[in-house]
Design a protein around this nucleic acid. Structure first.
Lengths: 329, 329
DNA sequence: TTGTAAGCGTTATCAT
DNA sequence: ATGATAACGCTTACAA
């Protein structure tokens, strides 16, 4: 099927080794034979088998990324940045999705380990000591993004709690008297890793604890819009909705438009993540930028650190977030 | 570093071969030895080295996808669907991006071939006989998505020309007297593959050729909004804008909102692609769905066909498009 | 300057 | 039921 070093050797009447020396630009070979070999290699259309090379060298030059899905634009932006960072360093990126399924996540990770990925980037759904043990048993450098698993693995993240506090501060600075926090179910915290949302919730509460005069409401679950309706009927207090994710905010904004509820005149809305499609939404959503591309490149750096330096120490890398004060508050 | 078959064999005082028989559930081995081997394998944490297996079997179970970027949501949706389709068939997905750079595209493809991907999915930027030759020389099954390269490779696509004709028909049915077509520069057609946009443009013209009374304008290039302004100043004729890509439409809609131009009352707008973020945009953009997820799964099927059947014949697979008559016309 | 031999970890074939 | 041997394609000591 495809040309091998052996075939070139045969055709040139030299040994395998000599061919290697020519192909890999090594010394201890005469210019003459080198030329002959390179010429016939080219002529025969030789291409190295990277599987074989990887096996031999113990380096696959492949990195795996296990993400939740690609419907969430936060992941997409991160993925894009990761791909670019890796590509420029000669690594190839493998992507696997877990669809928020804990078992699937483990399978994907195991598969990557079996394929001898040199490192794995992970936005984990799993959590807890058993999962930690599983990851450790793989003996592969792993860097987590966003959600934290354990101190044994470097994690790149923003300070979600502080970000939420800053968001609340902004809201209060604009005179709102009631704040609603919308997020996915946190009740699954026992079995699933919703770390970042939990952090945001805690920040939300921490900041509001300083302002007992402000009414606070937490809405969680998929039917958040239904839960929101009764609240919207009593708008005597100026109300702002802080969403743990821009998509929640966009959904709500769309509904508001249909109900002729004006933003921010009637209700204020703020998102989280600053996904790129916000560019196309009017009015421009006020949100918190979690700097996905930045996170991605730092995570890649950290992973490569761990790959090249066996003794690199795991750390929690906290990157700055940014309040994007736009038009919906 | 990691446990191998040899080590298990040594520990169990049997040969490599026997270990393999146990691990791979083969016959010709006593239940007793099998159990012993499986137990110690588990105990030692054995995991097969998939690189070695791939090399030996000549099957890597990896598929490469070369896309343009992940900023374009059309690609993202396709990627997501491809990943799901492949994962369920036991293949692993490798992703590489070319950033619309023709040379980069070739590099990525070559790399995939060198890594012995069993097949490659391609949204090609390159075109022409030289590129065709390059692809053929790789001896890897390739399926193109969207853009066509040559009859030697299966291509999965929608009939973009017909889709554009249908779009124009819809526009005319609503009584518009002037139609503007917005698309990326087609002048680069010589060196770059903008096949789908060219097809759409030709459909646009073909349909309007049947209606000489309708004024037509084509706008191309990045500064499309500037080119649009003079047109908008003379709105005595009812005008619709057909965009070869939803993102163009979204950009224009946003600008319109700022300029207080009403859609569709003042100007009609129609997009192309039906990207998922349209869900959040009000008013709902009228567009053409190119069924990305459908394209993706068909492309995967076709690729796997070619992988398993050396003699599979290349075909052009045309999937149905769908006019999404929503709120902006 | 060139070649020999062993090895990466797995699998398949053929003997015993 | 078990094992010896060669093979996948590449690399690297170590000889000559």
């Amino acid at each position: 099927m495809s040309v091998t070093v052996n075939e070139i050797a045969a055709k040139c009447n030299v040994s395998r080794t000599t061919v290697i020396r020519a192909l890999n630009n090594q010394s201890r070979i005469s210019d003459e034979t080198r030329k002959k070999i390179l010429d016939t290699a080219k002529e025969m259309g030789y291409r190295p088998n990277l599987l074989a090379r990887s096996l031999n060298k113990g380096r696959s030059m492949m990195i795996g990324m296990v993400a939740i899905n690609m419907e969430n634009l936060v992941f997409v932006e991160t993925l894009n940045a990761i791909n670019n960072a890796l590509q420029s360093r000669g690594y190839s990126l493998n992507i696997a999705l877990n669809g928020e399924d804990c078992e699937a996540e483990k399978c994907r990770i195991q598969e990557f380990a079996d394929r001898r990925m040199e490192g794995i980037l992970l936005s984990p759904v799993n959590k807890g000591p058993e999962f930690e043990q599983f990851l450790l048993s793989l003996n592969v450098p792993i860097v987590c993004i966003g959600n934290h698993v354990s101190d044994r693995f470097s994690t790149v993240m923003v300070d979600e709690a502080q970000a939420a506090r800053d968001a609340v501060k902004l809201i209060l600075s604009k005179g709102y008297q009631r704040v609603v926090f919308v997020c996915p179910p946190l009740s699954v915290v026992a079995e699933r890793n919703v770390f970042s949302h939990v952090q945001r919730a805690s920040g939300f509460h921490a900041e509001l604890d300083l302002h007992p005069e402000i009414e606070r409401i937490v809405i969680t679950g998929d039917n958040y819009f239904e839960q929101l309706s009764p609240i919207l009927e009593t708008l005597e207090k100026r109300t702002a909705i802080l969403c743990s994710g821009d998509i929640y905010a966009l959904n709500i904004m769309r509904q508001f438009k249909e109900l002729k509820i004006r933003t921010p005149r009637d209700v204020g809305i703020m998102g989280f993540d600053n996904i790129s499609v916000l560019d196309y939404i009017v009015p421009r959503l006020t949100t918190v930028s979690t700097n996905n591309t930045n996170i991605a490149s730092v995570a890649v750096n950290e992973l490569i650190n761990h790959i090249t330096d066996q003794n690199a120490v795991s750390k929690k890398i906290v990157l700055p977030h940014q309040i994007m004060d736009m038009e919906t508050l």
